[in-house]
Design a binder for these strands. Structure first.
Lengths: 228, 228
DNA sequence: AATCACCGTTGTGTATACAAGATATCAAAA
DNA sequence: TTTTGATATCTTGTATACACAACGGTGATT
């Protein structure tokens, strides 16, 4: 598909380390509030402190961890309100992707988009939330690409990645797959039709509900906690 | 103004180094295509290679430089189309700020915004483009803050910073200050009025013209080059 | 004469050593 | 008993040393 596939075959350990640590953060192995000791990480991964430091600095500048001078790195307690803010921005980025995609999508990309969409449908019918979750990412990625704005694709992808753990929480919400798929359908229709305003609005709403669902979930958890 | 002013008084040399190098990149001291030799930078700033490397990695993950494994860091040739893409995204981010600001701005922030606006007016009347340029940044920052979305503020500020050198090119375009100020006026009116759609549209247009102006400038330069 | 291979140099990637600040512990005094 | 102060330890920040890959040049071979 993408003939400009770049396989840099990075020799930098710090890059690989960054991914490993990021993985452990988003999967909850290093929950919020965790102190990331450099020596400890170095021992864990069998390398020296140097690549670990480089990885931490990179993660820090992406916003995944916080580094306070002379006090080390910690996984930040991402406040629920913060996450909501991020969903708010995500909604707008996706809306922008949709708006541009409706105007710029090529025939090939239309096919790819519908293919991804039908794959989601299959996952819905099979009632396999995990698969649907995966395919959903592909679906959105297709829309990003159809915007024909490389910088936007990067930004949207990055934020999407960062929000992944919070989106994951909603996997098994009642009727989530069916609702999501119907929203996707409307989005695809709008894009194919070339209705940029509609596509934009649909996508914004689609993502915004996720943010609201997250807020609901947090509120529920808080009440639950308070109840005990 | 902001009582939560955080002055971390960073002890990390790499952080300061990052800013210094960034400064030199955006001001053209290290023009696109420059090879950034680690030892050379270390000597220049009187430190060892370690902090230099950390600074470079940070700049790399922000996208300001490119690091290819075993081949060192270079200042990328940011294609004109790439910059246009970034302006396109910037326009959308600013539009979002305006939309939210129109709904959420507080009385205090209204005052601050109008104050920044009047400062711009003074610079326009004094016909001092450099001052106007500075105050223009403050003006936009006020709008960001009025969106009451901290994450959005960060994203918008970061991209604004990154686009600064390209915006600077347009400083002395004919009537730029007067036009810009009039656009600002419309934006302020829309925000104060609470008309989020209008504020959003005005801001999007305001930034979009900057991107188009940049494109025009590039086209002109290309023609000029071809002519010689 | 042109091309390819080998070797030397240069510079990145990693490890270790050292310096300085921050935290923790323990003791002493209020 | 609590609080404060001093010291010890631990961790980060920086420098230096070493290993290895990439680039360039020179020489030999076709």
């Amino acid at each position: 598909m993408n003939s400009t596939a770049e396989i840099p075959a990075t020799t930098r350990q710090s890059e690989r380390l960054g991914e490993l640590i990021e993985e452990r953060i988003v999967t909850g192995v290093y929950p919020p509030g965790t102190r990331l000791d450099e020596q400890e990480l170095a021992d864990t991964f069998g390398v020296s402190r140097t690549p670990v430091r480089e990885a931490l600095i990179q993660l820090s500048s992406v916003g995944l961890i916080e580094i306070r001078p002379r006090r080390g790195a910690t996984v930040p307690e991402v406040g629920a309100d913060r996450v909501c803010e991020m969903f708010e921005v995500m909604a707008e980025l996706e809306a922008m992707c949709g708006r541009l995609a409706a105007r710029r999508i090529t025939p090939d990309e239309q096919i790819a988009l519908q293919k991804a969409h039908r794959a989601c449908e299959a996952a819905r019918d099979a009632n396999t939330p995990d698969v649907y979750y995966q395919l959903n990412e592909v679906f959105h990625q297709r829309i990003y690409e159809a915007s024909h704005n490389g910088f936007l694709v990067e930004q949207a992808t990055a934020l999407h990645r960062r929000l992944r753990p919070y989106r994951r929480l909603q996997l098994r919400v009642r009727n989530r797959m069916a609702t999501s798929f119907n929203e996707h359908q409307a989005i695809v229709d709008a894009i194919i039709k070339g209705d940029s305003d509609l596509a934009s609005a649909q996508l914004r709403a689609h993502v915004t509900v996720q943010g609201e669902r997250f807020a609901d979930l947090v509120a529920t958890l808080r009440d639950f906690k308070a109840g005990t």
